Amino acid sequence: MLKGHQSWIFENKPSIISTATVVGPFEGQGPLAEDFDVIHGELYIGQDSWEKAERAIMEEAAQLALQHANLKEGQIQFYLAGDLMNQIISSTFTARTLTIPFIGLFGACSTSMESLALSAYIVNTNGANYVLTGTCSHNASVEKQFRYPTEYGSQKPPTAQFTVTGAGAAVLSLKGEGPFVTSATMGRIIDMGIKDPFNMGAAMAPAAVDTIEAHFRDLNIGPEYYDLIVTGDLSKVGYEIACDLFEKHNVPIHKTTYSDCGMLIYNYETQNVQSGASGCGCSAVVTYGHIINRIRRGELNRVLIVATGALLSPLSFQQGESIPCIAHAVSIESKK
Rank of each mutant, 00 (worst) to 15 (best):
S91A: 15
T97C: 09
A81S: 15
Y79Q: 06
K72Y: 05
R96L: 09
L98V: 07
A95C: 07
G104F: 04
G104M: 08
L105C: 15
Q87K: 14
I103L: 15
D83F: 05
Q77G: 10
D83R: 07
F106G: 03
S110Y: 06
L105R: 10
M85Q: 14
T99Q: 12
G82H: 01
L84Q: 06
S90Q: 08
S91D: 05
T94K: 04
N86P: 09
G82K: 05
N86D: 12
T94R: 03
M85R: 07
T99G: 11
M85L: 13
C109M: 08
I89N: 10
G107Q: 06
L105F: 15
L98Y: 03
C109V: 09
G107A: 15
P101N: 08
I88P: 04
L98M: 15
L80W: 04
A108E: 03
M85D: 10
L71F: 02
Q75H: 01
G104K: 07
G107T: 11
S110G: 03
E73A: 14
G74F: 06
L71H: 02
C109P: 08
T99I: 10
M85I: 12
T99N: 11
A108Y: 02
Y79M: 08
L98S: 06
N86K: 11
T94M: 00
L105S: 12
F102L: 13
S110M: 02
G104D: 03
K72W: 04
A108T: 06
A95F: 02
A95S: 07
T94D: 00
I88C: 13
G74A: 15
S91N: 12
Y79F: 10
D83C: 11
A81C: 15
I76Y: 00
Q87C: 12
R96Q: 11
Q77I: 10
I103N: 11
A95R: 03
P101I: 05
P101R: 10
S90R: 09
T94N: 09
F78G: 00
N86L: 11
F78S: 02
F93M: 13
I89M: 10
N86S: 14
G104H: 07
Y79I: 07
A81P: 03
Q77Y: 05
I103V: 12
Y79E: 00
Q77D: 09
N86H: 14
F78C: 08
I100D: 01
G104T: 08
F106E: 03
G74S: 14
I76T: 06
T92M: 14
T97D: 08
S90C: 13
S110D: 04
R96V: 00
N86F: 11
T97Q: 10
A81I: 11
T97Y: 07
S90H: 07
Q87P: 02
S91P: 00
L98R: 01
T97S: 13
G74Y: 09
S110Q: 01
L105K: 15
L105D: 09
F78M: 08
G107R: 05
M85V: 14
K72T: 01
L84Y: 07
Y79A: 04
Q75E: 05
I103Q: 15
S110V: 08
I88W: 01
P101G: 07
G74R: 13
G107Y: 06
